[in-house]
Simulated assay, not measured.
Amino acid sequence: MRIDVNADLAEGFGRWELGDDAALLDVVTSANVACGFHAGDPNTLRDACTRAARGGVALGAQVAYRDLAGFGRRFIDIAPEDLTNDVIYQIGALAGFARVAGTEITYVKPHGALYHAVGGHSDQAAAVVEAIRCYDSRLAVLGSPGSRWLELAGQAGLPVYREAFADRAYNPDGTLVSRRAPGALLHDPERIAQRCSRLARGEEIEAVDGSMIRVRAESICVHGDTPDAVAIAHAVRGRLETEGIELVSFAPAPVTENRSPGRPWSDPEHTDTY
């Protein structure tokens, strides 16, 4: 058996830091990197890409609404064509930093309110799919099982992968419990690790009301902004490896001999500034 473990990274901004990207990149196999719309600045994005490349961690563009103040967790009734262009813009920005780091992005995952919106909002789901199709149809997509977003992505010929959440509670219908509701976030690393083992094996897990549900997934997400995220990620990885479950990205970057980070240009005969 095999499973991917992903985490949201590069979600700080300027002097405001969120999460421990360096520690998480030692644990996860895929990194959902913010693209500057809900979080992240150029320095943060480049650092995450560089660290991921060095560690052999797959890079994904975590695209979002243009909502820094709300951390991308507020729905925006944006015109589909505008959303398509916003997503292309974000993918292109992260792809630039990935290239400089000597790697490339291999998948796209919506963030926050956009993630939930494309689960059932056909126009917005189609707009995100169109952005990826236009930019690079080889890019994989990551999202919730049964979402409209994954359905349309599959119809467009994009590689589709499903994810479950390590540290979020589920409703009986398989949707995530609202962050505003009691018990929405899970905190005990060992209990979370046990649940992730069941997810990786395709077994049922307990919903918030005590009923048992089955969530099919090729990847498990540990939120980088969750308290004790690093401890949770280590517990999850340790439990999976102990049980003989292989951790591998669903969308690894292809290995090429010529890939190498860019070098600063210099010419000893031209040292004057413009």
Rank of each mutant, 00 (worst) to 15 (best):
D82S: 14
T84I: 05
T84K: 14
N85P: 09
N85I: 06
D86N: 13
V87E: 02
V87M: 05
V87R: 10
Q90H: 07
I91Y: 00
I91R: 00
I91D: 00
G92S: 14
A93V: 13
F97S: 07
A98V: 02
A98C: 11
V100K: 02
G102S: 10
T106K: 05
V108H: 02
A113V: 06
A113Y: 03
Y115K: 03
Y115A: 06
V118M: 10
H121G: 02
Q124Y: 03
A126G: 04
A127G: 05
V128L: 08
A131Q: 03
R133T: 12
Y135M: 02
D136T: 03
D136W: 02
D136A: 12
S137H: 14
R138C: 04
L139H: 07
L139Y: 02
V141P: 00
L142D: 04
S144H: 08
S144W: 01
S144C: 06
G146P: 13
S147C: 12
W149R: 10
L150Q: 11
L150N: 07
L150P: 06
E151V: 09
G154V: 11
G154C: 12
A156I: 12
G157Y: 14
G157F: 13
G157S: 13
G157R: 15
P159E: 11
V160L: 09
E163T: 04
E163C: 08
A166H: 12
D167I: 14
N171G: 06
P172Y: 10
D173R: 01
D173S: 10
D173V: 05
D173E: 11
G174P: 15
T175M: 02
R179Y: 04
R179E: 10
R180Y: 07
A181G: 07
A184I: 13
A184F: 04
E190C: 06
I192W: 08
Q194G: 09
R195S: 01
R195M: 14
C196S: 02
S197Q: 12
S197D: 14
L199G: 01
L199P: 01
L199I: 08
E204D: 13
E204Y: 05
E206H: 07
D209L: 12
S211A: 11
I213W: 01
R214Q: 11
R214W: 03
V215E: 01
V215G: 02
R216C: 05
